[in-house]
């Protein structure tokens, strides 16, 4: 079997997964917790005609109360800390959290200082880390695929 065949099979498996799990849909709320706006531009391009995540039933919504998943960008600055916690508490369970970008993963070049929190996982539990500065839109789609296994587990266990 060549490498190309393997990639083809992997793509097919991913497609099955999308159909099976996104039979309904996943709603995403994007939270800017002190990002430089590069990640926001990539999130914007997710819904343009080229990447078009709406074809999988993924929607970007305007309120955390409508959302199943929070897509957090930025290193959680002191001013955005409370806003992030409020958003997390307003999201209905079972909920997922994706840390998008290097800053959200562990602080990135800002690190942990008096103004920068140094990563989303210091404040709220994170389900998937999407590294990249900023990650490509394809990488974000891949991150959502990775997190879906976790969603199945959460629904199975009826975790709060």
């Amino acid at each position: 079997m060549t490498v190309e065949d393997e990639i083809e099979i992997m793509g097919q498996r991913m497609n099955d997964k999308i159909r099976k799990i996104f039979g309904r849909s996943l709603h995403i709320r994007e939270v800017d917790a002190g990002s430089c706006n590069a990640c926001e531009v990539e999130v914007n391009s997710l819904s343009n005609p080229i990447y078009d995540i709406e074809r999988f039933g993924l929607h970007i919504v305007a309120s955390p109360r409508h959302a199943d998943m929070l897509l957090v960008t930025g290193s959680v600055t002191r001013n955005m800390e409370l806003a992030l916690l409020k958003t997390y508490n307003a999201t209905p369970s079972p909920k997922l959290v994706a840390a998008m970008g290097s800053c959200a993963c562990n602080g990135g070049i800002f690190g942990e200082t008096y103004a920068s929190g140094g990563g989303v996982d210091k404040f709220i539990p994170v389900d998937v880390y999407i590294p990249g500065c900023p990650p490509r839109p394809q990488a974000v789609i891949f991150g959502i695929m990775v997190v879906l296994d976790k969603l199945e587990q959460k629904i199975g266990k009826k975790e709060v």
Partner: peptide, 30 residues
């Protein structure tokens, strides 16, 4: 990779050429 900004500085300074930036971008992990 968690926190790496993919600037390529490490590749520039490495004299023996022991570090290379690949084109792989699917890095998400739980």
């Amino acid at each position: 990779c968690c926190g790496c900004i993919f600037c390529g500085r490490c590749e520039e300074v490495c004299k023996p050429g022991a570090i290379k930036l690949t084109q792989e971008y699917e890095l998400s992990a739980k």
